[in-house]
Design a protein around this nucleic acid. Structure first.
Lengths: 204, 204, 204, 204
DNA sequence: TATGAATGAGATTTCATTCAT
DNA sequence: AATGAATGAAATCTCATTCAT
């Protein structure tokens, strides 16, 4: 990478990092591009060399942060060799994500309701800049070598992600209707139930 | 209601209706108070007599619209006398909401991800202006006179609302991962599974 | 006129006057709206209450200033009772305009090439704000009670205005091809020739 | 011309052509140097190797385009051998220019009010890059071998160019006060009248 | 010659809010 | 209760120009 390329990347990263800091501390609406460039130490015009507007950089950050969480969850799962059933694997990942977001509430606020299936569509059409993983692949791999067959793995994953993220959001940030520690057993039970509802054998 | 009262309400209603039109056509961020008052045909200062700011009127509209949907679903359920089990009642209401939002996609866009448990909190603390129903009551009533006992009805309702609204949103608006017609059987199956997972008898 | 109306007019006039000063001293391109409002002593937003943008206020000024010149020329002609033939009346007005612009070169620069037939169209469609005269009327009145008939008075006036303004512009501002004092006899001769070319009797 | 010279000229030409396209489609004010270089496929810095600024390239284009029209008119006149009197020659050239601009209205918009005597001054001081003809020469040649003498040929040409261009502009682009087909007889008559007004013999 | 990333002043425009009427 | 003119801070975005490569 040439010196110029390095410098470009450096500026772009500085903008992303600064924008993230400001978005989580002040929120999207109250963060201005002026705020971002000032704190990032670049000129205002430079922002527009890399991003279309405030919402563009916001979307890219969402993709970035979401991808990072799932990547960690997948890595962690792999490093553990003892989890075999699809059910257990999904529960493991769900719990990982819940714990992660519970620990980093500002991140949860930032990702907000955007931790959803939609993100994968966006991530996949995004120019591989922000993430370099095909998450659809990652998740569907969970089902390989499973003894149990499932009606539609993609739909199953979709439902679980939506379920986990929306319940976690309310619980972690507002303790509604229960705090996350109390709610988690309900979530886990429900995930297992959703999965079992999709077993092909159970339909026989 | 006196003539003055009527006129007062007339302006307030005009503002609410206009704001709704603009929010669904342009979005919250790109709708200004100037836009609203101009189209509503009232003076700028008048806005501040009724609402604190843009977000205030937005919140009240969310509560209003959400309440309207649930009220209709509950009425419909009641008018039918043939649905008895908790499971069937909940499925009925879920399907009602899904169909409703599928028919009125702009409403879905507006309510967006706000059709969630959080809304009940807001509705309950809201000054009864926008809604006049205690929805917690409505839902918990579903469980009365049920032969089956459930671990925590409130948590159960919470989980189902979050599940239905987040999956419907993605499916109806983006057909991801499937269109709503194809997805609905999965949603229904999962709801039943979630409910069954909470049956106290099943835990014995 | 109410106090508010007076104040409105005062602001609008202040903006017009200030804009004119700046346009003639710095030119249209290098005058910013910030410049105008600052010097006019009004808030930036106020500008947008009265004018769409820089070009809007510019057009209105052109109309205003052009109208003022013609109004003066017409008044002057009327106050003199001794000029009777159409030819002499037109020559009188042309000379009046030439002298006027020669004395006020900044005004000539400002009006620039815009002193043309087009302005009448614009003036006439403008909401009578900037001018209150129907100039088409004024000019066509010159031909009333003329002993000589002309093929198409409107076309004749059009040709003369275009001829006078474009030749004057070059001569007064750049002394090209001659200074105005030397050029004027040529202009006058040509005007008379153009007029004579339109006499209906001359066509017999 | 060496290959480097060719390439150099190639970029310069690309810039000129692109600038012309943009000027006629967006206008001078709303065309930026960024627009030009982007569409021309050259780097921003390169622009400054050939032109001082936006106005520089604009002026050169005006000179270029104007020169091209007059060159064609002069060529056409020469190729016809049957037009002898000064009057007929001038009418021929005027009609040629009018027809040309009527056919190419975007060119007329671009040249706008700049088709005037001023252009010759600029053309003559321009570094012979854009045009390689001395138009003053061309026009004055019309008077050579004329049986009739004229008071001041240069002034005569000046007046006719200003007259033709300003009246054509209004007529072709706005049909004011008449469309060009109807107006042309008036223009022609007036030109002949202006010329005759300058005949020295007529002064005797 | 040619490039194009970076600059940053500054232009345009919006808009929530106030307050005299 | 209602108005709407006025405000002016602040946001977005542009763009001519420079300069290291």
């Amino acid at each position: 990478m040439s010196k110029i390329e390095q410098n470009k990347n450096h500026k772009r990263t500085a903008l992303l990092n600064t924008a993230f800091e400001l978005f989580i501390s002040k929120g999207l609406n109250r963060t201005s591009i002026s705020d971002i460039v000032e704190r990032a130490g670049v000129a205002k015009g430079t922002f527009y060399l890399y991003f279309k507007d405030k919402y563009d950089i916001h979307n890219r950050l969402i993709a970035r942060k979401t991808a990072a969480i799932f990547r960690q969850a997948a890595d962690e799962l792999e490093s553990r060799g003892d989890i075999n059933s699809v059910e257990d694997k999904i529960i493991f990942m769900a719990d990982f994500v819940i714990d992660f977001l519970n620990r980093d509430k500002t991140l949860l606020t930032f990702i907000s309701k955007n931790l959803s299936w939609g993100i994968f569509k966006n991530v996949l059409i995004s120019s591989k800049e922000e993430t370099d993983i095909d998450f659809r692949e990652v998740f569907l791999k969970l089902f390989e070598s499973s003894e149990v067959a499932y009606k539609n793995p993609e739909v199953l994953i979709f439902m679980i992600i939506e379920f986990v993220s929306s319940t976690t959001y309310s619980s972690v940030l507002y303790s509604e209707p229960l705090g996350i520690d109390e709610l988690k057993p309900y979530i886990d039970t429900s995930i297992r139930q959703i999965i079992r509802g999709q077993e092909v054998s159970s339909q026989l």
